[in-house]
Design a binder for these strands. Structure first.
Lengths: 120, 120
DNA sequence: GTAAACCCTCACGCCGGTGGCAGAGTCAAG
DNA sequence: CTTGACTCTGCCACCGGCGTGAGGGTTTAC
């Protein structure tokens, strides 16, 4: 499929997809007209890349776990990848805890505002 | 306190703190020697700014809820602030759910790697 | 056969910093 | 009274993950 279709099906912008390819996270065939041609698995691959990006992985880190982006090729990861995963799990724990605390603060604040609005 | 101490106590860089002040998130007295002079509450204020930044608020948004950064001055927020808070709560919900799903995926992957390592 | 829609590359801009540098003032200790 | 650590303003440049636009080629639909 061409880049526009991949963009539409993943929610990523065309620009982002080109960026992922430039950065080596994604591979594309090229026809005689230099257009990128992506296979079906690229859809899930892009979605997974975006989930990782939203949650604290950098492009470089994603490249290092690239083998895990497809469901083929399971196995054959090095100790570095394992260490990265373990570190990211801890990071995610911390971020989740922080977000929860922030939610509590905001909810508390909204409650106060509501009480103030009602109590007059 | 002077900017260096505030930086040390909050973990923010001196540069960042100047940036927050320029952006109007933070106020500082100035002595006769143009040095910034922060009060004790600035410590918590900077920490709160950083929590918000890490969790999806932009500088502009933080400025708009600036009145809520201190524990004084509660009350007198406009409807825009309430809308922002409500939207951010939903965003945080989504982000937390996604992070949990990602954790599950990573844990699953780590489990597979472990099984593979053990089963040979 | 032409207009719209798509694709290409190149290259600059944004945000929330972070760093560095210059040139200068200030403060505390020896 | 000097030395070193700190502070000030102002500027320029970098990062990542894109957005945006220029200037061009290709494909598709009428």
């Amino acid at each position: 499929m061409k880049i526009g279709e991949l963009a539409a099906r993943t929610g990523a912008s065309v620009r982002s997809i080109r960026h992922y390819e430039e950065e080596g996270l994604l591979r594309a065939e090229r026809g005689p007209n230099r257009y990128r041609d992506f296979g079906e698995p690229a859809v899930e691959r892009v979605q997974r890349i975006r989930v990782l990006l939203r949650n604290g992985f950098t492009i470089d880190e994603i490249r290092s776990v690239a083998v895990d982006l497809d469901d083929t090729n399971l196995g054959s990861v090095c100790a570095d990848v394992v260490r990265l995963y373990v570190a990211k799990l801890a990071e995610l724990d911390a971020r989740i805890a922080e977000m929860r605390a922030l939610q509590r603060r905001i909810r508390g604040r909204l409650g106060e505002i509501e009480r103030q609005r009602t109590a007059t």
